[in-house]
């Protein structure tokens, strides 16, 4: 976990912002473009120096803030992330892929050649790594925004906070606190749904519980999550099998500790049966 600290963003000129894409669906970058009301302010507050999805113009590095979307999945990306780190003073990973490896990290538990062979007609043209890994597995990351996709209010908060030198108001506590502040009924207690809220980091605004659904943990593990306790409640009280537990934990952030460790645990339990 990366502890939020105050960044040293220069106050003089407009800070330069760069947005990078690695292996991802572009959804998180879209959240940035979806800021709508604040987009004009954003363009006023920072110089968009490198953001291929938004504009063709590129300004040369260095950049003050770099936002990175996506995981490292190819040899080319493995090399490129080193350049990105060198080019950015303050590097922020945005979204589940960049912070945990994302859905594509499911291949980390499988045979990559088999996957490639199934998916592509001519697998010999595909150049890929064995694993999809989070950015922080390769370079130092200054801050991370979780979620699949990231919450645009959090993107705006992060950037506003960086600009004035505030500690970004990005909570690392459980989703439950956010859910309860909204006054939403607890779907776990009142409806026995397998809600991952008590071990998942807040930040989405409790989107799923707001529509009566269980949280599926797309914001990844909260600070010091008690996986074992919730896990045993789910298996013993709600009757979920180890396999189901593994699947729940491995959806978006399965490769991020301690979801990884817990999902591996349930995998072993499942295999033992």
């Amino acid at each position: 976990m990366i502890t939020p600290t105050a960044p040293a963003v220069p106050t003089a000129a407009k800070p330069k912002l760069a947005v990078y894409k690695f292996s991802s669906c572009d959804g998180c970058q879209l959240q940035l473009l979806n800021l709508e009301d604040q987009l004009l302010d954003l363009v006023g507050a920072v110089e968009i120096a490198y953001f291929l999805e938004a504009r063709r113009r590129e300004l040369p590095p260095p950049y003050d803030i770099g936002l990175v979307e996506g995981s490292v999945s190819t040899p080319e990306e493995e090399e490129r992330i080193q350049h990105v780190r060198r080019d950015c003073k303050y590097l922020v990973t945005i979204g589940a892929c960049a912070t945990s490896g994302g859905i594509q990290a499911l291949r980390n538990w499988a045979n990559i050649d088999e996957f490639v062979g199934h998916v592509y007609a001519q697998p010999e043209h595909v150049s890929t790594l064995e694993t999809a890994t989070p950015i922080a597995a390769h370079v130092f990351v200054d801050f991370e925004l979780r979620g699949c996709p990231v919450n645009q209010l959090q993107v705006a908060e992060l950037l506003s906070a960086l600009l004035v030198g505030r500690k970004p108001n990005i909570p690392t506590h459980s989703l439950c606190i956010e859910c309860k502040r909204r006054g939403l009924p607890c779907v776990l207690v009142s409806d026995n749904q397998p809600c991952l809220g008590p071990i998942t980091q807040a930040g989405c605004g409790a989107l799923c519980p707001a529509v009566g659904r269980a949280c599926y943990g797309c914001f990844g593990p909260m600070e010091q999550p008690n996986m074992a306790s919730l896990g045993s409640w789910f298996t013993s009280r709600l009757g979920y099998s180890p396999r189901k537990m593994k699947q729940m934990l491995r959806l978006f952030n399965g490769y991020l500790e301690p979801f990884k460790q817990a999902s591996d645990h349930y995998e072993r339990l499942d295999a033992r049966k």
């Binding site: 600290t5 105050a6 030198g165």
Partner: peptide, 10 residues
């Protein structure tokens, strides 16, 4: 030491 004191020192 932290973000507020850093801001003061600016």
């Amino acid at each position: 030491v932290g973000s507020v004191t850093r801001a003061i020192q600016r």
